[in-house]
């Protein structure tokens, strides 16, 4: 899949700062904020593998496919 074709939705209120999405993202899309919650810092790098969505225990990340295409 082409890069940059996916839109990430992130719900900061539900995030419990477990760090799974940050560790599992192969493209390093996420970084941490002051509360150790995930922040989408480079959304263009997203390859749409959905690992963050599949492994998020709190359902705060969703990947929307072909958003720009």
């Amino acid at each position: 899949m082409a890069k940059g074709k996916h839109k990430l939705h992130f719900d900061r209120e539900k995030c419990k700062a477990c760090g799974i999405c940050i560790a599992f993202c192969p493209a390093n899309v996420f970084t941490v904020d002051i509360d150790y919650c995930a922040v989408i810092s480079s959304p263009d790098k997203c390859t749409g593998c959905r690992r963050c969505e599949l492994y998020c225990p709190d359902y705060c990340i969703f990947v929307e496919e072909d958003y720009y295409g």
Partner: peptide, 13 residues
């Protein structure tokens, strides 16, 4: 929601 499970709990997955 949000559920009561601890951060990183497998139940959510």
């Amino acid at each position: 929601l949000p559920h009561i499970w601890c951060p990183g709990c497998g139940n959510g997955i």
